[in-house]
């Protein structure tokens, strides 16, 4: 399978990465090189094979459903490019 420029632009949109028309062209070639490389997986017979969900055979740890952390709003917002009173500031979303 290969992608066309329109698909590259759609994927860029889904990825929330702005892309110029010119870059979309070169990106199309790069992505098709990679997609061409992974094409060989079609040669493998995967009938009846379970897709891997965990690489190591172990039970996932569970924890008690209780509050163990919190009241660190200052820490959480400390690195924000824009924040006020422990809120993250973003461009207007609702008119």
């Amino acid at each position: 399978m290969s992608v066309d420029t329109a698909t590259v632009k759609r994927v860029a949109k889904l990825s929330r990465i702005a892309i110029t028309d010119e870059r979309a062209e070169s990106m199309r070639e790069e992505l098709n090189t990679i997609l061409g490389f992974v094409e060989q997986l079609n040669d493998v017979n995967v009938d009846g094979v379970e897709p891997m969900t965990s690489v190591v055979d172990m039970q996932m740890r569970k924890r008690m459903d209780e509050v163990t952390d919190g009241n660190i709003a200052d820490d959480v917002t400390a690195n924000a490019p824009a924040s006020e009173d422990n809120f993250f500031m973003v461009p207007k979303v609702v008119e």
Binding site: V44, M52, V55
Partner: peptide, 9 residues
């Protein structure tokens, strides 16, 4: 899904 099956193999 195909890649994850290959990973199992």
């Amino acid at each position: 899904i195909r890649a994850q099956k290959v990973r199992t193999l």
